[in-house]
Design a protein around this nucleic acid. Structure first.
Length: 266
DNA sequence: TTCCATGTTCCGCA
DNA sequence: TTGCGGAACATGGA
């Protein structure tokens, strides 16, 4: 689930539920998800504190704990948040729980344990240290800057979009959607994109990510012309009458229309 | 049983 | 040096 639009919705969810509530207990149900923080320190920082602000960069969500630093949540492939009161509402693969004085809890659920929870003192330092690229929605990203990001890059356009060091937040699903709407085959070579196509690609990136948030990342709400509700091998293309095909690229599945996505090679 | 899955990282190789 | 392909991580569904 969690690419940029999903994480943005997690942030809004956290804002309207867990923010400004006093934490009365911290339950670490699986310390395997902790990244560069020991359970004791996480408890000491969070216990008795309050989440006072949130930030997102790419697929990372940060929540400031008083003045003590930022809780960092990354969701891997299967992570999500759940705010609940009754124990029977606790999700099945809860790895971390913040319990609040009002009787509610915020669970971090991560079935496949590919996500991680950490504690950072400064968000911008973290972004810098990790070498994360700009966030296409949070950061100012003019067309010229984007075109520069693409210069001197080799490889395919899909792996570039998914490269978190170039742009932060796009994963397998949304790179497919963006390229489908731009009319570019994911195997196209970055160097083969002219200025006009680079401009169109950037506009599509922003539009697709914003729309996905607006539609609450629910494929049923997406316009029928989107790829997402039709991401199956062999079904008809909702745009042109071609066929949607599944191909393998860089070790993952990519879904493309065999008719309207042009493959640019040098 | 085998394949697949929205993430990241590491390794060998070109 | 950059990036590709594959494997690994952990878990579960079809």
């Amino acid at each position: 689930m969690p690419e940029l639009p999903d994480v943005e919705l997690f942030k809004r969810y956290l804002n309207r539920t867990a923010l400004h509530k006093t934490i009365s207990a911290v339950h670490i149900d699986d310390r395997g998800i902790l990244s560069r923080v020991r359970p004791r320190r996480l408890r000491r920082v969070c216990d008795g504190g309050e989440l006072r602000a949130s930030r997102r960069h790419g697929k990372h969500l940060f929540a400031r704990v008083d003045g003590a630093g930022w809780l960092r949540l990354h969701f891997g492939m299967t992570g999500f948040l759940k705010y609940y009161r009754d124990d029977d509402r606790q999700p099945a693969h809860t790895r971390l729980r913040l319990e609040f004085e009002n009787g509610f809890s915020l669970a971090y659920d991560c079935q496949r344990k590919l996500g991680e929870v950490g504690l950072v003192s400064d968000v911008d330092d973290f972004i810098e240290r990790e070498g994360l690229g700009l966030d296409p929605l949070e950061d100012d990203l003019p067309a010229g800057t984007f075109a520069d990001l693409l210069s001197d890059r080799r490889g395919t356009i899909k792996s570039l979009l998914m490269n978190q060091g170039v742009l932060a937040g796009i994963g397998n699903i949304y790179s497919d959607e963006i390229l489908f709407q731009t009319g570019l085959d994911p195997r196209s070579e970055v160097r083969a994109l002219d200025g006009r196509r680079r401009g169109r690609l950037l506009r599509t990136i922003k539009r697709v990510l914003r729309k996905a948030i607006d539609y609450h990342v629910d494929p049923d709400r997406f316009p029928p012309t989107y790829l997402l509700p039709h991401r199956d091998d062999g079904v008809g293309c909702p745009r042109c009458g071609g066929k949607i095909r599944r191909i393998r690229l860089s070790g993952r599945s990519a879904y493309i229309c065999d008719r309207h996505q042009e493959r640019l090679m040098e």
